[in-house]
Design a protein around this nucleic acid. Structure first.
Lengths: 196, 196
DNA sequence: CGCGTTATATTATCGGCATCATATGAACGC
DNA sequence: GCGTTCATATGATGCCGATAATATAACGCG
């Protein structure tokens, strides 16, 4: 290695970061190799020194996005008492800020309807991410004393992601906000934490 | 008009029908002009005699999809007492058959996450469809004696669409079914029609 | 029954994108 | 400072899709 050993790793990370944003903003089809390279300040040709293919980039990126989201949520909720953590999570996920920041938001809301058209591997990465999120939520539900947490968690996740995704399609800000608020209230009622 | 006047109209309708399936199955980006023409038994060149552009086709197709879905639901629920109609609607929408038939299903579940990346006109057509569906649902809620129907309807729609969309991304059939069942139960509980 | 019209087919153009081959130039050890 | 080696840049190549120009063929009217 004549280059500083960090160079390639740093570039790799930079590409992943750029891809993570573009994946959620543009979707897997519209994300382009040259676009990612340009975002990282490079030209398109060097891409294949870092990833075998666009597919490989997409798969690695998606796993990375889920992992980062998970860590972010854990940091956000760390130390909160269970019921509070739950309420905070719901407010955070089904919130205006999340709706307005697709590029950094949850992959489920951003890629929901794209999945059935993607490659097997990409779908598998998505599914793994969903399962991890659902498991994490189930644990928090259990900790908060909610019954049937395992079965409930995926349904709650779907309701939250569905609301955020749909809120992004509504141009009328008031209506969009109302949709989010109504969803937060509905979910909290279902969990018996309407007071938080 | 030397051709039978019906020819062009028939072809137009056939193209719309093919596009309607491909739009939901492939998404707006992967849907291709030549694919639609081939589905209708034609070659790609003649397309522009029927539509100004791919965009025009997409817009018209989306409006058509929503209109047809609406009519289909109205037929399904026609004559049922309000609470029954509501329960039937939920079972139908959040059902395995709907999940398994993307190409003929609701545009919201099929295109949810694609919308933020589409053209203004296409998004407007989508939004109009969503509003019409929400209004229809609100009317049925009101008829069934549910309070706050106007605010509740979009949130319910989002939960239903989110569940179906997410259920399509889960390869494990059992888990996927469970997600749907849990969502149906949750929504019915929220509406006080768990007994139906 | 053939003529003009109109729907559809053929073929061409153009651009974007993934991928790849080769060139360049920066950094480190000597 | 010099050459080696590796990251990145330059510049193809080839495919696929949207659009458009032109050619063909089906049809009904006179």
């Amino acid at each position: 290695m004549r280059y500083a050993e960090s160079h390639k790793d740093e570039t790799h990370r930079a590409l992943l970061k750029a891809a993570a944003r573009q994946l959620r903003a543009e979707g897997p089809d519209r994300l382009s190799v040259s676009g990612v390279m340009k975002s990282a300040g490079l030209t398109h040709g060097g891409f294949y020194a870092h990833f075998k293919s666009k597919d490989a980039l997409l798969n690695e990126t998606l796993a990375d996005v889920f992992a980062r989201s998970r860590r972010r949520v854990e940091k956000l909720l760390d130390g909160l008492p269970p019921r509070h953590a739950l309420a905070t999570y719901i407010d955070f996920y089904v919130g205006e800020a999340h709706r307005d920041d697709t590029a950094n938001g949850c992959a489920i809301t951003a890629l929901n309807s794209d999945m059935p058209r993607q490659s097997r591997k990409f779908r598998a990465a998505f599914e793994a991410g969903v399962k991890a999120m659902a498991d994490g939520l189930a644990k928090r539900l259990t900790a908060a004393g909610v019954a049937d947490a395992e079965k409930l968690a995926p349904s709650l996740l779907a309701a939250m992601a569905g609301a955020v995704a749909l809120s992004r399609t509504i141009s009328d800000r008031g209506l969009s906000n109302e949709l989010l608020a109504s969803t937060r209230a509905g979910i909290k009622a279902r969990l018996g934490i309407s007071d938080l």
